[in-house]
Nucleic acid binder design. Sequence first.
DNA 1: CTTGAAACTCACATGAC
DNA 2: GTCATGTGAGTTTCAAG
Lengths: 151, 151
Amino acid sequence: MDSLDKKILSVLQQDGQISMAALSERIGLSLSACHRRVKLMEADGIIRNYAAQIDRQTVGLEVQVFIEVKLNSQRREDLEAFEKAILSMPEILECHMITGEFDFLIRVCVHSPADYEALYRSSLSAIPAVSQMKTLLSLSTVKEFRGYHLR
Amino acid sequence: MDSLDKKILSVLQQDGQISMAALSERIGLSLSACHRRVKLMEADGIIRNYAAQIDRQTVGLEVQVFIEVKLNSQRREDLEAFEKAILSMPEILECHMITGEFDFLIRVCVHSPADYEALYRSSLSAIPAVSQMKTLLSLSTVKEFRGYHLR
DNA sequence: CTTGAAACTCACATGAC
DNA sequence: GTCATGTGAGTTTCAAG
């Protein structure tokens, strides 16, 4: 992982469909050297995959919510039951175990407030391991994720 | 946006480099029809862009933190000063305005705890508009974002 | 690291149904 | 919406410097 690799990753995070020829030119490397580096980073798992990024609003996912969750206990069975439930809910886009007052932070996208209520009441609150939740409704996005900053 | 478009988007969110031929086969559509739909969704901004997704840990970004931020006021100059500062910090990957006790939720990735302390003390605390912050250190990721669920 | 070449696949545009 | 087709472009690998 030298500075050329980081340059490559920066470009690929912005444009995952750039041709090798164009990429090598932007990096200032020959086509074959550039190709070798990209394939190596793919094989090493540095580049996980390539993905289309879609516009949340245009597909109707108007409501984005962050939820802080506290469990009844840190006992293994509560943790496992919670994580299993989380993994089974497709509206839950991500979930992190965190320090602080709450145990988990999750991100959710749904079509409408009614959908959120349904998820909150029927799915999340129904998990026995959950003792408390706090809803942080996203009002607007100041900064969107556009790839990691590599220095 | 019919169910075929959603199928296409689901596949492209998983594999942004799949060939049109392979995509059309997975969707059950002819190559030209599939190609037409993809190009249309790109033009319409439904597909924003394509991006390589890189592994945070392997590039050394070991520390991921969520930060809740409260401002001194909701006055326009405080909001604008804060948002401008946020946009100028590359370690801040995303920032959402939220409801609740705090005003913003931001996500940060850095190499080390020391880097986080520097960001927290020298950059974030230095924004005059900020009155209070709460750090939620991510201990582990239960579920990673792998694209939106389209139904 | 470089250049150059060969073999192959895919994109893309087209015309026809 | 489907199928067929041809050309140009991009990928991938290899050899040699």
